[in-house]
């Protein structure tokens, strides 16, 4: 039952992370999802991966998010999303129902199998050695990618596009101020 509770809580947290208005709240809920997942992992017997998930998912990634938000700014976006919300919700619900309907009723309840005694490191560097080697490649490619993306060169805000955005902001701000002034003018 504990597992069910934790999993349900993780789904709720995930939803809150998606719904959160501010980015920083969203990142914190995501850290919560990660921590709950780590707990669930350890209840499934996967202790080592639980520790890794806790330190990488809840720790490192959250720090990176917070850092990115402090660089990029955390302004709540007003207005509607690209796709109307009920439509996205409907699509996702439909998809979840189909998948759940396919999987849950026919799912065989497997007999309890005694857990193996092998450790994570033995498996990762032994039978799954090729995966481990490829992880090194992924990390190398990722580092090269980051170096390329974060290279400091050229003017930060480039040309026409940035000017257009800035002008749009200016217009919105002006409209807002006018609205506010109108609003104040009425009660007087």
């Amino acid at each position: 039952m504990t597992v069910l509770l934790l999993v349900a809580l993780a789904v709720v947290f995930a939803f809150l992370a998606i719904r959160a208005r501010r980015l920083i709240t969203s990142a914190l809920w995501l850290a919560g999802v990660s921590a709950l997942c780590a707990l669930v992992f350890s209840l499934y017997g996967a202790r080592q991966v639980a520790v890794i998930e806790l330190s990488v998912g809840a720790g490192l990634v959250t720090v990176l998010f917070v850092f990115a938000i402090s660089v990029a700014g955390d302004e709540p976006l007003a207005g509607r999303p690209v796709l109307p919300r009920p439509l996205s919700a409907g699509l996702v619900l439909l998809w979840m129902l189909v998948l759940g309907g396919m999987l849950l009723p026919g799912l065989p309840i497997p007999p309890a199998v005694p857990p193996d005694r092998a450790g994570l490191a033995e498996v990762l560097w032994g039978p799954r050695g090729l995966d481990a080697l490829l992880q090194v490649v992924v990390i190398f490619a990722g580092v090269l990618g980051l170096l390329g993306l974060l290279a400091e060169s050229g003017a930060p805000l480039d040309g026409a596009v940035a000017r257009e955005v800035a002008a749009g902001r200016e217009r919105d701000l002006q409209a807002l101020t006018e609205q506010l002034q109108d609003g104040e003018a009425v009660p007087e």
Binding site: G45, V49, I52, V113, P114, P115, L120, V123, L124, V138
Partner: peptide, 19 residues
Amino acid sequence: GSVKGQVALGESLAVTVIV
């Protein structure tokens, strides 16, 4: 992995996915 009694294998896959 846990259901099939291959916890360590499941963990190994999960670590690769996390990375």
